[in-house]
């Protein structure tokens, strides 16, 4: 590179690259998803299947945040981290309001119960 100030490899965001963390994230996420699939397939055999699935999902998200995205409060990552946190209310709104709507819809239309 003729001009180091503009070398993309010198950007602090790029310096975060960490092969070992990526592989760890991949392995853990794959393991969690396989376990979740197994629980979903044999739901009746596992006590509190819904809780176990939710726990696995939460753990997978946490692993990806820490190892893959490497979100923290350093000056490099603060924008990304805050953006991520600000997206959380959207998630709650979209999923929460949808669940509320479907709950009332289910009781009022009984559509899903009538279908084979």
């Amino acid at each position: 590179m003729a001009h180091d100030a503009h070398d993309p490899l010198q950007h602090p965001e790029v310096r975060l690259v960490n092969g070992r963390a990526y592989i760890a994230a991949f392995i853990v996420a794959t393991a969690l998803m396989t376990a979740a699939l197994a629980v979903a397939l044999h739901g009746s055999a596992v006590p509190h299947a819904m809780l176990v699935l939710s726990g696995a999902a939460a753990l997978a998200i946490a692993v990806q945040i820490v190892f893959l995205l490497q979100l923290d409060f350093s000056s490099t990552q603060i924008w990304t981290t805050v953006s991520f946190l600000l997206a959380a209310p959207l998630f709650v709104i979209a999923v929460g309001l949808s669940m509320w709507m479907f709950h009332s819809l289910d009781a009022r239309t009984m559509l899903m119960n009538l279908m084979p």
Binding site: I93, L97, M101, S104, L105, R108, T109
Partner: peptide, 21 residues
């Protein structure tokens, strides 16, 4: 903009409470 989408299907059959929100 994230909390108004249901007004595109008010007639789907959600409860008055949901529609009011």
């Amino acid at each position: 903009s994230w909390s108004v989408w249901l007004h595109h299907f008010f007639t789907m059959g959600a409860s008055p409470r949901v529609n009011t929100f």
